[in-house]
Amino acid sequence: SEHYTFDGEEQAIRFMRDMEAKNLKYELQIHNGKYIIQVD
């Protein structure tokens, strides 16, 4: 699995939509205002 970190919500949402379009599962965590997305 890989981790991707985003500072902004818009970037994170765009990335998650992209993952959904590719049928990839992901998990979102928010730490200290950063959006951390783990992709299986």
Rank of each mutant, 00 (worst) to 15 (best):
M19H: 03
Y26I: 07
K25V: 09
Q29I: 14
M16Q: 02
I30K: 05
I13H: 10
I13P: 00
R17I: 11
T5G: 03
Q29G: 05
A21R: 10
R17A: 13
Y35S: 00
Y4G: 01
E10A: 10
E27G: 06
M19L: 15
E2P: 11
H31A: 11
K34F: 10
Y4T: 03
M19C: 15
E10Q: 08
I30P: 01
R14L: 12
A12R: 01
E20T: 05
I37V: 13
E27N: 12
I36K: 04
I36F: 10
I13N: 11
Y26N: 01
R14M: 12
G33A: 03
E27D: 10
G33K: 03
E20I: 08
Q11Y: 06
K22Y: 07
M16E: 02
K22I: 08
N23G: 15
M16C: 09
N23P: 01
Y4H: 08
I13Y: 11
R17E: 13
A21E: 11
A21V: 07
G33E: 04
R17C: 12
D40R: 11
H31D: 09
G8W: 13
F6D: 01
N32A: 08
L24K: 09
I30N: 03
H31C: 11
D40Y: 15
H3L: 14
K22S: 08
G33I: 01
Q38L: 14
K25M: 07
M19I: 11
K34L: 11
E27L: 12
G33M: 03
D7M: 08
D40N: 13
Q11P: 07
Y35F: 10
F15H: 02
Q38D: 06
R14A: 15
I37Q: 00
E20M: 07
I37T: 00
Q11V: 06
I13L: 13
Y35A: 00
M19R: 02
A21T: 08
L24H: 07
T5I: 14
R14T: 10
L28D: 00
K22Q: 12
V39P: 03
H3G: 07
I36T: 07
T5V: 14
I13T: 09
A21G: 08
K25H: 11
K25P: 08
G8A: 14
Q38F: 15
N23W: 04
R17T: 09
H31S: 11
I30W: 05
N32K: 07
Q29P: 00
Q38A: 12
Q29V: 13
M19V: 06
E2C: 08
G8T: 15
Y35V: 03
H3D: 06
D40L: 15
D7K: 04
G33V: 01
I13Q: 11
N23A: 07
E9H: 09
Y4L: 05
G33L: 02
R14I: 12
D18H: 08
A12G: 01
T5K: 06
R14D: 13
N32T: 03
M16S: 02
N23Y: 06
N32W: 04
I36H: 11
D18C: 12
I13K: 10
A21N: 10
V39A: 04
A21H: 08
H3R: 14
E2F: 15
G8D: 15
K25I: 07
E9I: 14
K22E: 06
R14C: 13
E2K: 14
K22G: 05
L24M: 11
N32C: 09
